[in-house]
Design a binder for these strands. Structure first.
Lengths: 195, 195
DNA sequence: TTGTAATTTTGAACATTGTTAAATATTAAT
DNA sequence: ATTAATATTTAACAATGTTCAAAATTACAA
């Protein structure tokens, strides 16, 4: 039956929407079955008809947030000419998105899944996200010999690890304590990688 | 009265020891007031006579683990001659320690404190740990012009962020899935930073 | 030594969160 | 319209952190 599928998907959507609102608002700390269900307009028990557990529901949001972030990054960097400068700009926009919504960073990187094996595709999607955002630009830089093709892969990883570490420490450990200093460090590190 | 202080410190020690055993064994996921108190040989309520809350107790372990890790790193690298190679060796030993005890990494970097403001000294101690381990070697490299003195600060930070990101993703996201590949990435990234 | 005051320890109880299952309400089909 | 299927909810349980009043222990003074 087709109607049933549509209705089920709609129901799942209500819970996902509620979860997204909580994550973007007060963050992961207020995301729990009762808050989600309240906001969706159902009892917390109804949630279990449509999701195996709350972790499953929470990780359903990843795809949507990646789409939103992608859009944000494109808007912020569309006037930037191709090249190393654009990789930096994309990275900074990516970081800006997570600083604006720390709850989404927590979901992407800190929150544990109930069974990580089952959620491996999602984990992979998160891990490769920055590289996908910069994909075309890395290619452009390699083709135009702006970056040593041998070093490109290592640099991609370096970028990924530095950014993850930097944002992680800022969001999870308040280090550095000032955004201004965080921003300075970000620029400094980007310049070092592409020196 | 001095006796009272000694006795109180001893009691605190029992709970801290129990917590450390759990962290090194089954990890953060089994660290809770009831398990800790059981292992210490007291009721869970007694714990609150000696610690404000369980987070406070857990973060008391940081100092001890840093001492242990420092000893481990010194043992692993004492035959290494000074220079960039030693910074790499120290870093690898530091990583090795956390890979052996993922629960300790979780405590250091992932676990949230109840009030981060009050625990700022501990957070700071964690953040500066790798730099302190490598302190003498950075100095040696600067003095002997093995590393451009202008770039040293940036490189220290780069090292810190890359290592944090790399180990964090491996422990918290199982990425990469194989230790062999993780180890390869670690070496590759270290070589890139000191190229 | 013994009765009392201070201290320590503990079990009961409460709050929060995730989850399940039985009961209830709603919808669909004959 | 009655009944079968489905959806939703309330009640309840488990795990965890925390508090508090009662119980046990210790310290001390008469």
């Amino acid at each position: 039956m087709k109607n049933k599928e549509i209705q089920e998907e709609r129901m799942r959507g209500y819970f996902i929407e509620a979860t997204k609102e909580l994550l973007k608002g007060e963050g992961l700390k207020v995301v729990n079955v009762r808050n989600i269900a309240d906001r969706a307009g159902y009892s917390f028990a109804t949630l279990y008809t449509y999701f195996k557990d709350v972790k499953d529901l929470i990780f359903e949001c990843v795809k949507d947030f990646q789409d939103e972030c992608t859009e944000f990054v494109e808007l912020e960097t569309k006037s930037q000419p191709s090249g190393v400068g654009k990789i930096k700009a994309i990275t900074k926009a990516y970081v800006k998105y997570f600083i604006q919504y720390p709850g989404i960073f927590e979901l992407f990187f800190i929150e544990k899944t109930r069974d990580i094996a089952h959620k491996q595709p999602t984990i992979e999607m998160i891990y490769t996200f920055l590289n996908r955002l910069c994909g075309d630009e890395w290619e452009y830089c390699s083709e135009n010999n702006l970056i040593d093709a041998n070093k490109a892969e290592i640099m991609k990883n370096q970028l990924n690890y530095v950014i993850t570490g930097l944002v992680f420490l800022y969001i999870n450990r308040r280090h550095p304590s000032e955004y201004k200093e965080f921003s300075r460090l970000l620029n400094e590190q980007l310049d070092f990688i592409f020196a």
